[in-house]
Amino acid sequence: MSIFQFISDFFRDSAHWHGQDGIPHRVLEHLGYSFMALGIAAGLALPVGLVTGHTGRGGNALALIATAARALPSYGLLVLMFFWLGIGLTPVMIPLVALAVPPILLTSYEAMRTVDPAPVDAARGMGMGPAAVLFQVELPVALPLILSGLRSAAIQVVSTTAIAATVSLGGLGRFVIDGLYQRNYETVVGGATLIAGLALAMIALFWLVGRVAVSPGVRGGR
């Protein structure tokens, strides 16, 4: 039986569309974990990246943190946290946040560094306060790079959230892990397809956000 047969069987089975173990519920769970991790990571990394980028200090420290965080294996970290903290959301959030912080941190820092200083000088000279300069002059121009960092983080987090199932949590990983355990290849492939689809949906989502939020003047000016 071909892989595509498995996929189509999985999605045609009406049992997969209802209840706790149904596709809609698992997708929502998956997105819930992912966006929670992404939100925490953004809440930590964006202010730090933007402020350090704005002042121009600490860039090398950030690069070091990012390199170190990249060396941590997400799956291993998850299992270790499961041992140390038990079953729950926290042991899942730690590796996911650790995964999402470096790209957000580095891109927001670099986005602020690469903002043309001339408009900032002009804005200050026209009598704009520091907050207005940040939100009306620097951020709109830095946005594409910041979004690209968030997108990288989102894709990686959505992919990696799948392993939450190995420590007894929900999400689309459940289909894969349970399927592997029960040797039910149809469920495994179906779950994998959903995870891949969700990751690709992140590309589309951030493409849309970029279209809406980034000024055509910035998009065209690059």
């Binding site: 043309d116 001339a118 900032v120 002009a122 804005a123 200050r124 026209m126 009306q136 000024s215 910035v218």
Partner: peptide, 17 residues
């Protein structure tokens, strides 16, 4: 500053506006 016009080299226009 708002009571003084300010013009700089390369204009320093806001590219998103």
């Amino acid at each position: 500053r708002r009571s003084m016009g300010y013009v700089i080299q390369n204009a320093g226009l806001f590219q998103h506006r």
